[in-house]
């Protein structure tokens, strides 16, 4: 893409104008507002708020559960994407469409549905309770909800990458005597790794900020099952605006960093594909 298009196609000014106006009005100015508000605290104040044990515990849970959920989603997501791309089976189209369900289902609905399922009296909870495996209201429940909402991200970024896989490379490896596992580990996985990482990072980013589906199934205990977004809400409800904005601002910086990582990964993916 080069500058020369500017001279030929019209509409650059108005469209860029609308875009910049909207991005400013909807994203930049509101988010800047958050920073301005938390700036009142000063860096020291923000640091102090964010490093209290309760906030740290919430960050640990949010990031820990999101990381575990993203890792599990990497495995499940790969499995689902692989099966959907490589095999034919009855009901495949339905499964393929259903993958997007967590994305299309309103989070509050997922939240109460998961709680209804995994509460000790729920369909699944009833089976798990005798095993001494409580899911609802524990970090396990939080992780489960995050797996649910993160799955489509991994599957949907992996699918195109798996489709683009060059069959000849695999065939060549097979001809050279590589076993199926070797091909998978040495040929397939390295090729789709950037896509896999992108998907996992997206799932992770979504999981860290997730609120609706988690609050219902989490026990919301400070230090134990309290996630960061809930902590922001709790701070607000205690009229602690400074604390809420401080935590919000930190979350925002982290979101931005994660997005930047995704963009870099996608750049890597692009180069990788061109390299092939």
């Amino acid at each position: 893409m080069t500058r020369r298009h500017v001279g030929v196609l019209p509409g650059f000014g108005p469209t860029l104008g609308i875009t910049v106006f909207m991005v400013s009005a909807v994203v930049v100015i509101p988010l800047m507002g958050l920073f301005v508000r938390s700036a009142g605290l000063g860096f020291g104040g923000v640091w102090e708020t964010v490093t209290t044990p309760r906030v740290l515990a919430a960050f640990r849970l949010s990031f820990g559960a999101s990381l575990i959920a993203a890792a599990i989603n990497a495995v499940i997501g790969f499995l689902v994407a692989w099966t959907l791309v490589r095999y034919e089976f009855p009901g495949k189209r339905i499964v393929d469409a259903l993958v997007d369900l967590p994305f299309a289902l309103p989070t509050a609905v997922s939240g109460i549905a998961l709680t209804a399922l995994f509460a000790p009296q729920g369909w699944v909870g009833r089976l798990l309770a005798p095993l001494g495996l409580p899911v609802a209201f524990t970090p396990l429940g939080v992780t489960l909800a995050l797996i649910f909402i993160g799955l489509p991200f991994v599957v949907r970024t992996l699918q195109p990458a798996l489709m683009d896989l060059d069959a000849e490379v695999e065939e060549a490896a097979a001809v050279l005597g590589a076993g199926r596992w070797q091909i998978l580990g040495r040929v397939v996985l390295p090729t789709v790794l950037p896509a896999l990482l992108t998907g996992v990072t997206l799932a992770f980013a979504r999981a860290v900020g997730e609120y609706g589906s988690v609050v219902f199934i989490s026990g919301n205990m400070p230090h134990k099952t309290e996630i960061v977004p809930l902590l922001i809400v709790a701070k607000l409800e205690q009229y602690d605006y400074a604390g809420a904005t401080a935590i919000g601002a930190v979350m925002l910086v982290l979101s931005f960093a994660i997005l930047l990582a995704v963009n870099l990964l996608q750049g890597w993916t692009g180069r990788h594909r061109e390299g092939n």
Partner: peptide, 21 residues
């Protein structure tokens, strides 16, 4: 001994009554 902390009284009643906690 509190397994679940809801943000309001209604949440707690639901937890106790509906979810059997």
């Amino acid at each position: 001994r509190v397994p679940v902390f809801d943000s309001g009284a209604r949440g707690s009643t639901n937890t106790f009554v509906r979810n059997g906690i």
